[in-house]
Computed example of a mutant assay.
Amino acid sequence: MPYAELTITVPKSVWISELSRAYPETRFRVLAATANTASGVARIEILGDDADTICAEFREYDSVTDLTVFDTEAGTTRVQVETTVPLLLTSLQDSGVPLEMPFEVVDGQMTLEATLPQETLSELGETLDDFGIQYTVERIRQEPESDSLLTERQEWVLDEAIERGYYDTPRRTTLVDLADELGVAKSTCSEILHRAEGRVLKEYRDDDAPSEVVASSS
């Protein structure tokens, strides 16, 4: 299947486009999101020093019906935003593209990377055109059979767990806190970690196993 990398220009009518253009040094990392034709909900990390001002401006948009601030630390603020204009998410869902989380919006643009059947890739271009969303195809290549031990989502969750101290002794974060920080359900986080740990341990065991000795008779 072909691997595609697209730079998508978020329409100016979408609040996150306008805010990211107004604060081009700030990164808006979307950790989780869901949408239908009428509304959408997104868990977002605001990475920058203007989070308080940005949150205040969030609330000024008519299309933003609710904003909840979960926690704030140096340079990072996590919020949940409910909106009545989920244009970008709706267009991607309509094309059948599974949107990998997290993704970032910076200065009005986001990069979409996906390995898709050619038919789905074509439908994505048609859907973006129908919605009037501008995009640039940066790269398309035929993706070889993947030899990666973990999926991208497993790598992301496992890396975040390590970075946040989930595997430290004593632990610096709990499974509940880790799941909340990543914007996923506790059961989902647990399952992803369990599968990733299983693959890593099995790979370690296979690599550590002694070579088989084959006896021969003369």
Results as ranks from 00 to 15, higher is better:
P2L: 08
P2D: 09
P2M: 06
Y3L: 06
A4P: 00
V10S: 06
V10C: 03
V10R: 02
P11Q: 14
P11C: 13
V14T: 11
S20L: 05
R21K: 11
P24Q: 07
T26W: 15
V30A: 00
L31D: 03
L31W: 00
L31I: 03
A32V: 00
A32H: 13
N36M: 07
T37R: 14
S39A: 12
R43W: 15
R43P: 04
I44M: 12
E45L: 13
L47G: 15
G48I: 08
G48Y: 00
G48V: 08
D49H: 10
D50W: 15
A51K: 02
D52H: 10
T53Y: 13
C55G: 06
E57T: 09
F58A: 03
F58C: 08
E60Q: 14
D62N: 13
D62K: 13
D62L: 15
S63I: 12
S63D: 09
T76K: 14
T77Y: 01
V79Q: 02
V81R: 03
V81T: 05
T83D: 11
V85H: 01
V85E: 05
P86H: 06
P86I: 01
L89Q: 04
T90R: 05
S91H: 05
L92C: 09
L99A: 11
L99K: 13
M101H: 06
P102S: 10
E104C: 07
V106M: 12
G108W: 04
G108H: 04
L112Y: 04
E113W: 04
T115M: 14
T115A: 11
T115D: 10
L116H: 02
P117R: 11
Q118V: 07
E119R: 08
T120F: 01
L121S: 03
S122F: 13
E123R: 10
G125N: 05
G125S: 02
T127N: 09
F131W: 09
Y135M: 04
R139L: 13
Q142T: 07
Q142W: 15
S148R: 08
S148G: 12
L149D: 08
L150E: 03
T151D: 05
W156E: 08
A161D: 11
E163C: 01
Y166W: 09
Y166S: 00
Y166N: 00
Y166G: 00
Y167V: 10
Y167G: 05
P170R: 08
T173K: 02
T174A: 07
L175Q: 03
D177V: 10
A179G: 04
A179D: 03
D180I: 04
C189I: 01
H194S: 02
A196N: 03
A196E: 04
L201V: 05
D206T: 13
D208Q: 15
D208Y: 14
A209R: 15
P210D: 12
S211D: 11
S211A: 12
A215Q: 10
